[in-house]
Nucleic acid binder design. Structure first.
Length: 241
DNA sequence: CGCCAGGTTGTTG
DNA sequence: CAACAACATGGC
């Protein structure tokens, strides 16, 4: 059976019709995660950009609940600030973000991104926007601990760059559906989706969030295909026979 | 108890 | 290159 890349647009329509607008990325307000209504249509302020960037690190291979708790603690203590994070002891930071798992590594990663902001962005996180997409991406990726997914999450959700995020959920879903064979490189999958989906930042943001949502409900590691909205165009059942 | 979660890096054959 | 190990908490 020939692979139908035009399904990529269709999948988005189905997911959006089923689950609606997701309003990613969440921001902490009153000690909980809020998926803001107006976020997809306005640029974030510097504080929010820092919070999203740190959140992207904290959620690496961990559920948002665990990462969110760490963010809440950081925010409560007033630590979501470049200078304060620059001066805080690594151990103290690690202890505060304990709930997100891999806390020693993540504390180091946060320190390194702060160093990057201070040294390469003159201490102003907004200066990342002065680079074009390619350069901003190269610079973020050169930081230890920032891989492609984390980098692209920061670029898309904090800085309004038009780039599609590929995570494990996206790989798994697109593989099961039959759009990729699963061995493709991160950027190959990204280019495929970017070439087929509408080149619209809101679509990129919502599409990624919708994939995560669907994958938590149906396209789990152990798939639960009953009532999956993508059942009709998915090759998974066929392939597993 | 085991499995999984919005990854990344380093090592080895 | 790919396969694997290390990193670690919290929910179910």
């Amino acid at each position: 059976m020939r692979i139908k890349y035009e399904n990529i647009k269709h999948i988005y329509s189905i997911l959006y019709a089923e689950y609606g607008k997701q309003n990613w990325w969440p921001i902490i307000k009153d000690n909980r995660s809020v998926y803001s209504q107006d976020f997809s249509n306005r640029a974030k302020n510097s504080e929010e950009k820092l919070e999203i960037s740190i959140g992207a690190i904290l959620t690496q291979n961990t559920n948002w609940n665990n990462a969110g708790r760490s963010l809440i603690k950081l925010k409560e203590k007033g630590l979501l600030n470049i200078d304060i994070l620059h001066n805080i002891e690594l151990k103290e930071l690690a202890d505060i973000i304990r709930s997100s798992g891999y806390y020693n590594q993540k504390a180091k990663k946060i320190k390194l991104i702060i160093d990057f902001i201070i040294n390469d962005l003159s201490g102003n996180i907004e200066n990342l926007s002065s680079y074009d997409l390619h350069d901003a991406r190269e610079r973020l990726l050169s930081i230890w601990g920032i891989g492609k997914e984390t980098c692209d999450s920061i670029l898309l959700y904090a800085f309004d760059f038009l780039i599609f995020i590929i995570d494990n959920y996206t790989r798994r879903l697109f593989h099961r559906i039959g759009l990729i064979d699963g061995t493709e490189e991160y950027d190959d999958i990204r280019h495929l989706i970017e070439s087929e989906a509408d080149r619209d930042i809101t679509v990129y943001r919502e599409y990624h969030a919708l994939i995560v949502n669907l994958s938590k409900i149906h396209c789990k590691k152990k798939p639960d295909c009953i009532k999956c909205p993508l059942e009709k165009l998915c090759l998974y059942r066929e392939a597993s026979r």
